[in-house]
Simulated assay, not measured.
Amino acid sequence: MNTLKGGLAATLLFLSAFAQAANLQSQLTSFFAQRLAGFSDEVVVNIRTPQNLLPSCEQPALSVLGNAKLWGNLNVLANCADVKRYLQVEVQATGNYVVAAQSVARGSLLQPGSVTLKRGRLDQLPPRTMLDITQAQDAVSLRDLTPGQAIQLSMLRQAWRVKAGQRVQVVASGDGFSVNGEGQALNNAAVAQNARVRMASGQIVSGTVNADGNILINL
């Protein structure tokens, strides 16, 4: 009889621990699905931490470091009434990423048909693979690309909106005033990048390139 009770107790304990682990996995899946919304529509989380080291409460507060990646192997902080546990998890995320739709020669300006979206496991891609196809707009390839190749951000640069030696308009503005002047760009720069300009007086100023090619300075 005692043996039967002991076996029943062990079974109930096992089922309780199993249910707790399943509940935690569900919470982790929801946690990462919310953070990956817009990038991934299919998230699977596998817990690698041993069951005896999982948090004891039913609803732990989950968090990751602000600059941590959100898929692959990573650590999650689970906080239960100020008792902290670090969980090792594997996050599998499926979504769209940018690939070359055709061969692209190094130094070429990408055209609308140069790239396309492909669906797959984001956690298995090279670091900094492009997920937003608009980032390829007005971009120049820094290397030869082959059809189907995943495009990393380091493979492209934005096309120069201003080139060194070019005459540019400088617009300096402040509270209630705006002053225009002309100068010579001293470096290549894309839209939203910084450009240095030598003014007619010889003074060198620095500002941000806008879509029109003007250099904006906020005073």
Rank of each mutant, 00 (worst) to 15 (best):
V179W: 12
L8A: 14
K163D: 00
T129C: 06
Q137Y: 12
V91G: 05
A192K: 13
G174L: 05
N2W: 11
A21T: 08
L70H: 07
S173A: 14
E90I: 08
Q152V: 06
M1W: 11
P126W: 07
A17F: 04
W71S: 09
W160T: 09
Q111M: 11
F39Y: 13
L142P: 04
V168P: 01
V64S: 01
G213Y: 01
G165A: 01
A139M: 08
L54H: 06
I204N: 04
G174S: 06
C57S: 11
Q34P: 01
L219I: 05
S173Y: 14
L110E: 09
G183Y: 01
N46P: 00
T49Y: 04
Q51E: 10
V43M: 02
V98H: 03
K118Q: 15
P112E: 05
S141C: 07
W71E: 02
Q152W: 02
Y86C: 08
Q169D: 09
G174F: 05
R198V: 13
Q59L: 11
L117I: 07
N79R: 10
G174R: 05
Q25W: 01
Q203R: 14
N73S: 11
L125W: 06
F31T: 05
N79T: 11
V45E: 02
A195P: 00
A61M: 11
T129M: 05
A139L: 07
A68L: 04
L62N: 04
V179A: 12
D123L: 02
Q27D: 12
P50R: 04
E182G: 11
C57F: 07
S40G: 02
V140M: 11
I217R: 13
N194V: 14
T146G: 07
G165R: 01
G6Y: 12
S173L: 10
Y97P: 04
L125H: 06
F32R: 09
R157G: 07
L110D: 10
S103D: 10
G66P: 09
Q158I: 00
P147H: 08
D138T: 09
Q158W: 03
V76Y: 05
V115W: 01
Q135D: 13
S63Y: 00
Q27K: 13
V89P: 00
P55N: 06
Q27A: 14
G176I: 07
C57Y: 07
L70Q: 11
Q193I: 01
T129F: 04
W160R: 11
G176T: 08
F32H: 05
D138K: 14
V64Q: 03
G181D: 10
P55W: 02
R35D: 03
M130I: 15
P147N: 05
G165L: 01
Y86R: 14
S16L: 11
